[in-house]
Computed example of a mutant assay.
Amino acid sequence: MTAPALDIDTVTVRYDTVTALDRVSLSLSPGTVCGLVGTNGSGKSTLFKTIMGLVRPVSGRVSIAGESTVVARRTGAVAYVPQSEAVDWDFPIGVREVVMTGRYGHQGFMRRPRPADRAAVESALDRVGMTDFATRQIGQLSGGQRKRVFVARAIAQEAPLLLLDEPFAGVDAKTQQALTAVIRDLAASGRAVLVATHDLTGLPVLCDEAVLLQRRLLLHGPPEEVLRPENLALAFGASPTESPASAPVAREVQ
């Protein structure tokens, strides 16, 4: 059997005395797009950091394509597109060079691009519609164009798992539609994508399934089910420390 692209087993994460994630379990199959929904402070960022191995859980485990987070990071098995990049936009680096950084895990110590690296970069640029901007300095791009570039970098990495943190924040409707099409295409090619988003209206088009997170995993199932008002009230109307079992109409979607 093929290993899940992502397997999270009863993970608990604490920052000192604060529990950020409480016994969270989640499994994503290859070719799946899953939306991650929750309020600010619900644990979405912590979940991403835990998947990437940047935060160590106090209990539970995470595996990516059957490997530990340590191995996954070393082999480039997980790609991450943060909500905002810590970038010096005045630095003299072009779009193509930025996307090429996604190939570092495939290159040797000297990081000299090979034909396969160049082909992967050109393909990624084409998929996000940024080929015509390949030589443009990164700071000369609009917000939506910058987002496309960093999605292209994740595509070029060829990771089986992609983590996207608010990919539609600050972009126009055209860019959102284009990125949605790219994400769906990535899933069709066998990659798993976990997307944190506040855009609930676009969730059924974007995602195959959705997760409702409020430190605990409250719900996991089809987007149309998760987005029902009585279910959203569990995360957006309940206290973060309230047990899902004690909240109204709480039930887990299988």
Rank of each mutant, 00 (worst) to 15 (best):
R118F: 00
R118I: 02
V121I: 00
S123A: 04
A124R: 01
D126E: 15
R127P: 15
V128K: 07
V128W: 14
D132M: 01
T135P: 03
Q137N: 14
Q137F: 03
I138A: 14
I138V: 15
Q140H: 14
Q145S: 10
Q145R: 09
R146Y: 12
R146W: 10
R148L: 08
F150G: 04
R153E: 06
A154Y: 10
A154K: 10
E158G: 09
E158K: 02
P160C: 02
P160S: 07
L161T: 01
L163I: 14
L163F: 01
P167M: 11
P167T: 10
F168L: 11
G170Q: 07
V171G: 06
V171K: 03
V171E: 01
K174Q: 14
Q176V: 12
A178T: 10
V182W: 09
L186S: 06
L186W: 07
R191F: 01
R191H: 06
A192N: 10
V193S: 07
L194C: 04
V195Q: 09
A196L: 14
A196I: 10
H198N: 02
H198M: 03
L200S: 01
L203Q: 08
P204A: 07
V205S: 10
L206R: 03
C207P: 13
E209D: 02
L212A: 02
L213H: 11
R215Q: 14
R216N: 10
L217F: 04
L217P: 04
L218W: 11
P223S: 02
E225C: 07
E225Y: 11
V226P: 01
L227I: 08
R228V: 00
L232I: 02
A233H: 12
A235K: 12
A238V: 05
S239D: 15
P240E: 10
P240C: 09
P240V: 09
P240F: 05
T241E: 12
E242A: 12
E242W: 04
S243W: 06
